[in-house]
Design a protein around this nucleic acid. Sequence first.
RNA 1: GCCGAGAUGGCGGAAUGGGUAGACGCGGCGGACUCAAAAUCCGCUGUUAGCGAUAACAUGAGGGUUCGAGUCCCUCUCUCGGCACCA
Length: 816
Amino acid sequence: MQDKYDAKAVEQAVRRRWEERGAFAVKDDDPRPKYYSLCMWPYPSGDLHVGHLRNYSIGDVWARHKRMQGFNVLQPMGWDAFGKDAELKARKEGIHPAAWVESNTANMRRELRELGYMVDWSRELATCNPKYYRWEQHLFLRMWEKDLVYYSPTKVLWDKATGTVVARRDVDDGKVARQDVEVREFPAYQMRLRRYGEELLAGLAKIAWPEKIVKDQQYLIGRSEGMSIRFALEAPAAGLEEIEVYTTRPDTLMGVTYMAVHASHPLAAAAAERDPKIKEFCEQALQILPIDAGNADSEKNGVALDVRVLNPVSGEPVPVWVADYVIDDYGSGALMGVPAHDERDFSFARKYGIPIVRVNALPGADPAAPVEQAEVAKGVAVNSGPLDGLDLAGCVAKLEELLGPKGKARRDHNMSLRDWPINRQMYWGTPIPIIKCAKCGLVPVPDEDLPVELPLDVDFLKEGLASHPEFVNAKCPKCGADAQRECDTMDTFVNSAWYYARFACRDAADEMVAARAAPWLPCDHYFGGDEHAQGHLVYARFIHKVMRDLKILPPESGDEPFAALLCQGMVLGSDRKKMSKSQDNTVMAKDILERYGADTARMYIIGIGNPKDAYPWNEEHVRDHALFLEALWTLARERREQVAAGADAEPAAANGLALKRLQAAIDRNLKEQRFNNLVFGGIHSIRNLVRDNPEDAGLQHQGFAALLKTLNLIAPHVAEELWAGLGYEGLLIDASWWEPIAAAELQGDEQLYVVQVNGRKRDELTVAAGLGDEEVIAAARACANVARHLEGKQVAQAKVVRKPGGHGIVFFVAKG
RNA sequence: GCCGAGAUGGCGGAAUGGGUAGACGCGGCGGACUCAAAAUCCGCUGUUAGCGAUAACAUGAGGGUUCGAGUCCCUCUCUCGGCACCA
């Protein structure tokens, strides 16, 4: 051991030691039980930022702990290497995306290795490798065969400036100028996410995920219960005799004062042909994307059509409007307007002077009271003829009885989840294995022609794949005629929807997911940011189920890809704002890695606070951890002899008990994933205990062992070095965790009681453990300060409460 | 608007099923070592009153339940993150 702690030298030496012993290599056929711990892989943007540092440090605490508990732990790493940012960045700087990605991954791989994460690098994957994406094309083809991907036009936001499809977000964030954006109808390959909606919803009950993510996904799936109700047209129009609407509030049926249809509805289209004003309105309304039907507070616009429908119960006619707040592909693209009991309908009706009729009132409220604002709360029906006095469930039953036999109403349900358009008009992505033939239409590429390789010698600055004749021109696999390849590529969310499965059989040449992956799947624990709650995490769950149904996954892989999930909070800038380039408050992992080394960086980021919460960056606190490790090093050097001497000794009873209690606290914090408490409450406290009891050799030996085992989860290099320096056997990374500590072991031969009178602490009392309640109460009553507070009062109650962990409460309730 | 998280000393943050609020760290104060300083080590450190024992007040605000509330219930304020016209 060096005199002084030199982080860089220690870390290099220790990493070399791990490498020489192959400490990170993972075998599929290891006899230990398996544990698959995965962190969301990074987008290779150049350097690791401190958010990555946090994510991977948290994951590594868990993975190393599982390993020490005796599991064969798989913790792989790879690159989400395709994507728009690489392409845009490359365009801007004139570098090929492939070159950009390669240099970035090289850099980030080095940084990850320097951080000492327990990653089996022989399993590394990158989405831009043809050996990876060929299986994505394979999956696409299998889904195409089963109609799980289909081709249909959809509306998208088109950026005229760059000639690409852009996301709504990018416009909102100002990445794309508003005036350059228009809505275009585009052919799209869509995955049938909706078909799995019910299962995606039900599956949420089977996984240990944060409540927040579960709620977000439930909301995204948006399953609702209601009725579909048919309104007859007063006179047939556009070849229609009736319009069906879906509603979750059939109890407000008698309050319908208009009906609204989407601009693409046949009734609207027919009216547009007759009336130029309606035509103009419809054209404008069609510029609104379905996903963008707004902005909840944007104004609602509409035009009345010269059409009326009849209320199926009362037969009363109401006008039909075309309105821009109607969503094309939700329900039937038409809705019944009930201004009194729906916010949107209310503001629409207000604007156009449409009558507002109360048909619902909370119990006891005046049914004749005017409606001042939309009353959404569910009461009972009023002013509703046959429905009067019924609640929602009652109304549904009544309407079923009244209208059901005539086929005018039925119970129904709906989902707001949409199918998933996966093609992007980008070069840097997985080519879609489809050939477009003038005669045969869309023809899948035969399996033997996979992969459809993305050509690298492309002028991606201009037209991407379309400008590459050797790529574009192909023969139709069906009829042999000249045909063109599909030039769109896949959404990167497809790339990362199945990578967890491929990690388990990284180089399988003949199968997407080989049999040897079976023991690993599903993934036991996943770590990542909650920004993926509604994107990646839904797509991965969907693709897992699809792969299961297509028999791509081994049968034991389960219904869900990730059994447990931890979403770590953000690392904020030192100004407590979200880190961003524009705020100039970003911190890169290398800034701290170079200055202090990996162990200090990891110690800081784990100690920063509860993994789930967001914390601001604080450079001063980084230094504190560096100082701690230095002091620990010095202490360990001083104690080498005592540690060796204590190998066969037991600590003094009180010290042994104190150590056990700290270890129990460490176990609890690990179980609850409160990793920050491992640093201060755990490692620091054990350090203090051994530091303050130098004469207790047994404690030195056991205490340092426990300390280093815990430190191994967080600052593994220095822990490994001290482990060797203090003469412990073998590699620390291979050491086993201590046995779970039973509550009985935490009990000393003395018991501390806090004595309370009327709920206020009045004294402390230490007595031999094992005394009966009466003896303890008697002793408590005898405490001077307690006696003083009880004097002249009647003791109405006296009780002993024993808490686990060696303390208790004695309380007196005194009156008078 | 909806969903979620949060508010505890000068600061970061602890506190197991309601049971010693402020663990541990930083900073501050005092001391040791030193010619001196840095580093290191030791002690003290929520506020107020008191020489002291001790007492009162303290976990965003206000109520409630309880012998006892940071923790449970109700109302409110503020901060952060995500999602948003899904009939």
